[in-house]
Amino acid sequence: METKSFPGTVDSLDSIREYAGQVANEVGLSKKPTYALKLAVDEIATNIILYGFERVGMEGTIEMSSEVVDGKLMLVIEDAAAPFDPLARELPNEEDLTQTLEEREIGGLGIFLTINGVDEFRYEFKDGKNRNIFVMNLE
């Protein structure tokens, strides 16, 4: 499992999405799940960069790796920022999603899109690192 490392800044998001797209292409995902994976990875990486690193003035890296296990693509993002479980946050519910733009709160949509777009999303804190795991079923 080859690991790629990216500086933990918003300038890296383009390359982070490109990595996710390459991995998706290698395992033959079609256009829609490839986009969904890139979107999910972008959302989680953005949170790590903005809240894990930038907000606390920490410099860090985002490590990405992938492997195929039992017919599933597992893409993993690791970072050494403070523990943060994206699943611990309350997601927008049906009522939130039907509110007009004037009434909307601005947060929470990224995690919602992440969970909604991949077949499975898992979080764990292991060996001092956050591990965000994106699982896509292979066709």
Partner: peptide
């Protein structure tokens, strides 16, 4: 491509 950051600007523009 558009992430939730783009959606937030749409919400921001209306507000």
């Amino acid at each position: 491509f558009m992430s939730s950051a783009g959606l937030r600007v749409l919400i921001f523009s209306k507000q």
